[in-house]
Simulated assay, not measured.
Amino acid sequence: MRHVLVTGSAGGIGAAIAARFAADGARLTLSDYRADELSATADALRTEHGVEVAELPGDLADASFAEGLVDRAGRLDVLVNAAGIYPATPLLEMTAQAWDRVQDVNVRAALLTTVAFGRQGGSGSVVNISSGAATRARPGAAHYATSKAALEMLTKACAVELGAHGIRVNAVSPGFVTVDSPANPVTEAYAAAVSVNPLGRRGLPVDIAEAVYWLAGEHAAWITGAVLRVDGGSTAGAPSLPLHWDGETAVQQGSLEGQLHA
């Protein structure tokens, strides 16, 4: 039976990840700063799956809490760093405090938990939750986009140093996922603008959970330092853009090119 620690697991993607491991009979330790919601999630998993679930509520921006989280959880097989915050802060309103809190939760906490996981000894798997914002900035998200870009490089750096210890470190980068989260609310206007993709639907927390579960398991045993983009194909391109020539011009040009290559 694997022991899995999932941060940011009171709801949304983190809760879905916890549920996927619970369905496999894993022993779980869940952490989130929202203690009441965390308890509700843990109770639901115990009832539905009959698994052992421990709760460690706390704020990952507190370095001492983040550093001690893994040791408090006990010997782990899988660590999932799903906790993340994405406040909207226009660049000219950015403060050191606002910047630091996002970096502390989204990057430093993942570093500290991964280091503690490595120090436990033995093999295992770490999966970090990144974002498409790691490669594409947007207004109000300078701190968030920077944190996710840093998290992806942290994933690679940890994979390089921990591979010799039998620990794999990977990341899953979700596209837009429908999550009703009071901690990280988004407007419908924003959701509509960023959720266009070749597969034609918004992501669900379970889409991300399945990817995390696979990366953490034996079928991905030779994968480390990878970033798996689970985004409906939005990274591949924008299907909503029109042809850069109108249809008639494109047909004519295609005919001309065919003649030239004949």
Rank of each mutant, 00 (worst) to 15 (best):
A10E: 09
A145Q: 06
E152V: 00
S31C: 08
A220V: 02
Y144S: 00
G232N: 02
G58D: 12
Y144G: 00
A63F: 08
G118I: 01
A211Q: 00
G84C: 08
R136D: 10
L151R: 07
S39E: 15
P90T: 00
A157Q: 12
D207K: 01
N106Y: 02
Y86F: 14
A171T: 02
G175F: 08
T89H: 12
E152Q: 07
Y86K: 08
S64G: 13
L91M: 14
I223L: 10
T235R: 15
G50T: 03
F21S: 01
R34T: 14
Y33K: 11
D36E: 14
S130T: 03
M153C: 11
L162E: 12
V230Y: 13
E188D: 12
D59T: 05
A250R: 14
V70C: 07
P139I: 02
L215F: 06
G225D: 07
T114Q: 09
T178L: 15
A250H: 12
L199S: 09
P139T: 12
V186M: 13
A44F: 07
H165L: 13
T89Y: 09
E188C: 01
V251H: 12
V227I: 10
V179L: 05
L69Y: 12
A142F: 02
S123G: 09
E67V: 11
A141I: 05
S130K: 04
F21L: 00
R229P: 08
V169S: 07
A221Y: 09
A88C: 15
V80F: 05
A54C: 07
H143Y: 09
S123M: 04
G175Q: 09
A183I: 02
A109L: 05
L28G: 02
A66Q: 08
G84H: 05
G200Q: 11
G11M: 15
D77Q: 13
L256F: 13
E161R: 10
G132V: 00
I129Y: 12
R27L: 03
T95S: 03
A42S: 07
A44M: 08
D71T: 11
L111K: 06
R101V: 06
V227P: 06
P57D: 09
E248Q: 14
R202F: 05
A73C: 04
V102Y: 07
L215W: 06
A42F: 09
V172D: 06
G50R: 06
L204M: 15
R101C: 03
P87H: 08
E248N: 11
A211G: 02
R201G: 03
S125P: 10
G122L: 03
P90K: 01
L76Y: 11
D231V: 03
R202W: 04
I129F: 13
R34F: 13
N106C: 01
R108W: 11
D24Y: 14
T95Q: 02
F21T: 00
S131M: 01
A157D: 13
V177L: 10
Q120C: 01
W99M: 00
A23E: 14
L38V: 01
L5K: 01
A134K: 04
W245C: 06
M1K: 10
S130W: 05
P198Q: 05
A10D: 09
E248S: 11
E188H: 06
P185Q: 11
S125D: 08
R34M: 10
P205V: 08
H244Y: 15
V160A: 13
L28I: 00
S131I: 00
A40G: 04
P205E: 07
G247C: 06
R168T: 02
A211H: 02
R229D: 09
L28V: 01
D43C: 07
G225Q: 04
S130H: 08
I223T: 14
H49P: 01
